[in-house]
Each structure stands twice: as structure tokens, then as C-alpha cells.
């Protein structure tokens, strides 16, 4: 029971911190002081206290978008084991639901963007659905490799791997899948080199342009949901990248927190040293991710 409470608490509280860490890392690279680590929390609190502005064009879809996105992300978060903690919800086949919850979130985010009738938001949602067509195969190939390696269709068992640890032939496929998943993570959470969350030009954005019209608490919900999405996908990746556990709950939890903060530092570093890819080159990167994962699958089944 304690473990479940810890899981839910981590899932609800920790995610915005990732954005704080990324911001701090980027500030450090740029030689600035940067906003405080807890800035995303302050932002959320501030947004919750504001009133909302709605475009006259919008309908219920516009309001449903953030709400559905957040609930899908939260439920997905309940199915993923965080570090050595088992997930509170686990059943055979939950990995499919996990992937499709993000599909549901995408349906609503993009529809809400189209609801405004703005050409820019339409552009953003078109890009979002296009790139998803390329990340989805990569994600499923990764899941296939992990399912084959662990012999389970339950995310908890699948990500924790077999009890005796992955066999030695698994290292190469896992490295490939890890690289593929990292690219998927960057694409799905709209980070550089796929999307630049800080750009000021609407024409070049993907995720940020879709939420231009959201304001106040609804915008807060969007920010919160996207931080949860990064947290959840990040913890999936961590299982592949650092499959270590000690067996002691508190040590494992702190290890997990350290790992996920390290991951955000890594993302921040990438954002600082790389430029965003040209929009027409993004598919190459995503296809490459799919290829890496399929090499991993090939290595397993050949």
C-alpha cells in the first residue's frame, strides 16, 4: 500500500520539476541564472487563479481537450512502474491501453486546436498527427522487443524484465530500443530537435502552437499534462537505460528520482547544444528511431 501511495504522490507532484530542471540546465549553458527550479509550480498556481478567455469560435471540444489529455496521461502514469516500484494498476495487455491513451490525448489535443479555426493551430495539429504516424511504430517495436525479452504482456513485468535479469544476448537489442525510445520521448514531448518549446514564431511550432488559445486554468492543465507525459515516457525509458534495483523501497525511490532528474538534465543539455531540425527533416529522425527499434527486434528474432 505504501508503495502505491508513493507512486501516486510521485506521479502527481514530481512532473513539473522536470521542466524546472530543464530550464535551469539551459540557463546554466547560456550562462544565466535562470528561473528558480520550482518555477513551473508557481506558474501552475498562478494559472489556476486566473480567469479564462475563450474564442467565440470554440465549442465543448476546446474545453474537453485539456481535460481528456490530463486524464489519459494520469491513467497511463498509473500503469507504468516507477523505478523499482510496481505500478498500482497492472493487467495483461495494459501496454496497449498505455499506447492508445496517448492516442486519445492526441485526438483531443488536435481537435481542440482545430476548434479555434486558426490556421496556425491547424498547422500544429497537422504536424502532431503526422509525426505520431512515425513514432507509433517505433514505440510498438520497442514494446515488442521488451515483451519478447521479458515474456510478459504486463507493463510492470515487462519493464522490470525477467526476475533473473535480462539475458546477455539482450544488451544489443536493449541499447537499440533505448536509443529509439529516447527519440520517441523527444518527439512525443515536443523537445529539440523535433520541436522547440521556446520559439517565438508560430510557424515553426508543433505543440505550443496548438495551445495558443488556451488560457488560465485550462492552460495550466495542458502544461501539467505535458509534464506528466514527459515523466511517464521518461520512466519507461529509464527502465531500459538503467535496469538496476536494490530491493530497498526508499533507496529505489530516491534512485528513480535521481535518474529522472538526470534525464531532464540530459534533455536540457540536448536543447542547449543542438538546433531544431528543419521540419521536413524531422521524419528522417523518426524513421531512424523506427529503424533502430526494428534492428533490435530483428536481433531478437533472427
Amino acid at each position: 500500500m505504501t508503495e502505491k501511495i508513493i507512486h501516486v504522490a510521485l506521479l502527481l507532484i514530481l512532473p513539473p520539476l522536470l521542466f524546472g530542471v530543464i530550464g535551469k540546465t539551459k540557463a546554466w549553458f547560456a550562462g544565466r541564472v535562470g528561473p528558480p527550479l520550482l518555477q513551473p509550480y508557481y506558474d501552475l498556481i498562478k494559472l489556476a487563479r486566473k480567469s479564462m478567455v475563450f474564442s467565440r469560435t470554440t465549442t465543448w471540444v476546446f474545453r474537453a481537450g485539456p481535460v481528456v489529455t490530463l486524464s489519459a496521461a494520469l491513467i497511463a502514469g498509473l500503469m507504468v512502474p516507477l523505478g523499482a516500484l510496481d505500478s498500482p494498476i497492472a493487467f495483461t495487455g495494459d501496454l496497449i491501453l498505455f499506447a492508445y491513451l496517448f492516442g486519445l490525448a492526441r485526438f483531443f489535443t488536435t481537435s481542440a486546436a482545430l476548434d479555434t479555426g486558426s490556421p496556425f493551430e491547424g498547422m500544429g495539429s497537422a504536424r502532431e498527427v503526422t509525426f505520431a504516424c512515425l513514432t507509433e511504430p517505433a514505440l510498438f517495436l520497442a514494446l515488442l522487443v521488451l515483451a519478447k525479452a521479458s515474456g510478459s504482456l504486463m507493463l510492470t513485468d515487462l519493464l522490470h524484465g525477467p526476475a533473473e535479469g535480462f539475458s546477455s544476448g539482450m544488451v544489443a537489442p536493449l541499447v537499440l530500443v533505448g536509443i529509439g525510445l529516447f527519440i520517441v520521448l523527444l518527439a512525443e514531448t515536443c523537445r529539440i530537435p523535433v520541436d522547440d518549446p521556446n520559439t517565438h514564431l508560430e510557424l515553426t511550432m508543433i505543440h505550443e502552437v496548438m495551445v495558443l488559445d488556451h488560457s488560465g486554468p485550462l492552460f495550466g492543465v495542458i502544461l501539467y499534462a505535458s509534464s506528466i507525459k514527459m515523466f511517464v515516457l521518461g520512466s519507461v525509458l529509464l527502465h531500459v537505460a538503467f535496469p538496476f534495483k536494490t530491493g530497498e523501497v526508499w533507496i529505489d525511490v530516491s534512485l528513480f528520482v535521481l535518474e529522472i532528474l538526470f534525464l531532464s538534465i540530459l534533455i536540457g543539455t540536448i536543447e542547449s547544444v543542438m538546433a531544431r531540425l528543419q521540419m521536413r527533416h524531422v521524419p528522417y529522425l523518426l524513421i531512424a528511431a523506427t529503424l533502430f527499434c526494428s534492428f533490435g527486434f530483428l536481433l531478437l528474432v533472427r
Binding site: 544488451v171 541499447v175 536509443i179
Partner: peptide
């Protein structure tokens, strides 16, 4: 040993 070797080789492929 094979593990580390394979990891490096896979990165070479990437």
C-alpha cells in the same frame, strides 16, 4: 565482456 562489446557495436550501427 560481450555485453559491453555488443553495446558499442550497436552504437556503431546507429
Amino acid at each position: 565482456m560481450t555485453d559491453a562489446l555488443n553495446a558499442i557495436l550497436v552504437i556503431v550501427l546507429v
